[in-house]
């Protein structure tokens, strides 16, 4: 790099740029938080769905599945599983694990009660209603 461009000029660009773009990020985040009520389906985030999220987290479902495309890529996307499979299938599925099919990927049994399964279903109903700008491309996730 040319010597006319000094180290202290470079340093100033760094500090100036960092501060400016961090503040811009904060500003955009603030705006996002204002816009969220229109998109994040909070009206369906009831007590049951909140408990469902807690069950989702404490069983580490994200360690095999993606949820809205984030997580692990070992098992099906679940953000839209409520739409794909419906509540009864979801409950029956979770209860009947593992399939024990030789060589097939396995999902553990978490010994959940019926109430806990209802909470999970409520959570999936809530996630399926979030406005994700039409992602995923189709129902398979």
């Amino acid at each position: 790099m040319s010597s006319a461009f000094t180290k202290s000029a470079a340093r100033n660009i760094f500090y100036g740029g960092a501060v400016f773009f961090f503040l811009l990020l904060v500003g955009l985040s603030f705006d996002t938080m204002q816009t969220l009520p229109k998109r994040d389906n909070r009206e369906n985030l009831n007590e049951s769905a909140i408990r469902g999220k807690h069950i989702w987290e404490t069983r580490n479902c994200i360690g095999c599945h993606t949820l809205l495309g984030e997580g692990a890529y070992f098992a099906p996307e679940l953000g839209n599983v409520y739409t794909r499979r419906g509540p009864d299938f979801i409950k029956a599925w979770i209860q009947s694990q593992p399939t024990g099919v030789p060589g097939r990927r396995q999902m553990p049994n978490f010994n959940l009660t019926d109430a806990q399964l209802d909470d999970l279903v409520e959570f999936f109903k809530y996630t399926a209603g979030i406005d994700t700008a039409k992602w995923p491309p189709n129902i398979e996730g």
């Binding site: 095999c64 692990a72 097939r104 396995q106």
Partner: peptide, 11 residues
């Protein structure tokens, strides 16, 4: 898919 299951599940 069932390698080491259920001792060490994938997650």
């Amino acid at each position: 898919g069932d390698y080491l299951f259920p001792a060490i599940p994938f997650n």
